[in-house]
Amino acid sequence: MWSWVGHRITGVGIFFFLLVHVLDTSLVRVSPEAYDAVIGAYKHPIMIMGEIGLVGAIVFHAFNGLRIILVDFWKQGTRYHRQMLWAVMVLWFVTMVAFSIRHLMIFFEGWEGF
């Protein structure tokens, strides 16, 4: 039940981010200055935390979505749905630890201060 709530909330969140993301990328057609200025906002420490949250939402939605697909199409899917939810959470955790470490290390290496 809560996995369904989580899937729904992350789906909506990602959808609204995607609207914004296509708009900010469209600035490459306005001018290089405009694009670089706006995309620069993604390099602020607060946004770095936001990116980790966003990737966390995407990775949960992706793995849990694959679980839904397996429950629907794989013969044994309904039998193992609970075990697969555990797998989703473990894989989510491992992926997020790896992503967060790499993202933060890159961020601190190139950070020029406020």
Binding site: V28, P32, Y35, D36, I39, Y42, K43, I48, E51, V55, I58, A62, G65, L66, I68, I69, D72, F73, F99, R102, H103, I106, F107, G110
Partner: peptide, 30 residues
């Protein structure tokens, strides 16, 4: 279901090539 499965590959490679290799977040500009 079909688009979801395809999006896993599309989005994971997108995030990896933009944020995890090279200078990651700092390399993104025009």
């Amino acid at each position: 279901r079909v688009s979801g499965a395809a999006l896993v590959v599309l989005i994971f490679v997108h995030l990896f090539s933009n944020l995890m290799v090279g200078e990651g977040i700092h390399q993104i500009d025009f």
